[in-house]
Nucleic acid binder design. Sequence first.
DNA 1: GCGACAG
DNA 2: ATCTTGTCGC
Length: 214
Amino acid sequence: MHPWDVSPQEAIAIQKSLQSHISLTDDFGDIKTVAGVDVGFRENNTITVAAVAVLDFQSLEVIETAVAHRPTSFPYIPGLLSFREVPAVLEAMLKLSAEPDLLLCDGQGIAHPRRFGIAAHLGLLLDLPAVGVGKSRLTGSYDEVPSKKGSYVPLMDKTEQIGVVLRTRSNIKPLYISPGHRVSISTAPKLVMQCVTKYKLPETTRRAHKLASG
DNA sequence: GCGACAG
DNA sequence: ATCTTGTCGC
């Protein structure tokens, strides 16, 4: 079988069928470890590099890391990012000695046209609490975010809230936070802030990014 | 038909 | 995402 060898049309159908299975309720116990997930590309985009960095949720110290390389098999199409990056991420996740208690992914959770961004896809496939941490907007509208660190405003699609726009550093472009699976919209930004220190990006993503890139 | 468009 | 050096500001 080639579960990831699908056409864009098939990918959209898969997202629509899986979407109803995600949970937007807080469904987790004590969070001891948090994993940051990021993906990079090499050799003119022909090689996909996925990295996972597991940190202690309390101290934010790195506990374990894993990296996986795979031939790139799907183009970048807005709305279908997970079909390009998830295969490599799953491979990296399998290399971990222990599953993390929470996943922080680069990209959107339900703040997606079909409410099924990469954080929702990964969270569902791994059955782990997951939150999407996007550096830019895919869909949704919002009002200006107060400039102070920690403040946030709702990210809306019509009248439906799909996430929040969170200021992780004063006077610096905010992040787009949305739950992926087993986490509520109101809890998502709090979990992310607990992973932020002095930089715009949470430590989880910073660590994973360094592994997947330079 | 015309824009918008995660990484 | 990636190609790339210095530079403005807290």
